[in-house]
Amino acid sequence: MNFVVALKAEAGPLIQRFKLSKQSSDPFPLFENDEHRLVLSGPGKELSAKAVKYLAERHPQPNQAWLNFGLAGHGTLEVGKAFLANRVLDDKERTFYPTQILRNNLRSTALMSHASPLSDYPEPIGYDMEASAFCANASRFSVRELIQVVKIVSDNPDHPVETFDRSSASTLIENSLSLILPFIAQLEQISQRVEPSTELIKLVESVLSLFPFSETQRHQVRKLLRHARTVGLSAKEAMDAANAGQSAKEALSCLQRKVDPHRELP
């Protein structure tokens, strides 16, 4: 699970809650535990885009969950309300629609990302400076259902941004965690459903290390091992079958012979 947060004050409660420890400071401060990574992007779209890329390159597994989290202005919601973006608008980028498949108690609203802070709130929607770039870039690394934006209202027409007391950022976020943490847990849960199987990845690697397979043969190995798994053969049975061959070609035919009798649907 990856978090991209603009400022340290916004990230503090998550860092504490997940007991994340600092792994690096350059090019972006990065905090991690075994399952969560949080990068501090700094404010603005350009930095947010770069932070996403940095994190994705450091942890290149496909289909991870990505959350852009932090404070935002809003045209109507009161200060302290947490909301989930259902449309992320931008003056230049295409509108991004984060898929709304998770049950939650967050308010659902549109969010517009601007290049600089706004002093007015023309529409009943959220306003921030990162989300559109975050979404556009995270969608290069994961499916859209796993890319979400949650913000907490820090300012609105009654409490304009100039009056916002920065020292209250952590408290605002801390107060919303009871709504946000279940959302994060669900996001992590659904991401597991589309993550590739680590068992299968390991098995493929082991079999591929047996012989020098050509590119086409590597593709066939992957397919046969996937089929072996779906028809109910164990990793050991598949490995033993591949091992029975004396060459890449033979390993493939042995695997094929092992899988073929099981191909009929039960």
Partner: peptide
């Protein structure tokens, strides 16, 4: 704009 973008998970949406 909602239906066509690439990179959607049909499987997750089906839920």
């Amino acid at each position: 704009d909602v239906f066509n973008p690439s990179g959607q998970s049909f499987r997750l949406q089906k839920e």
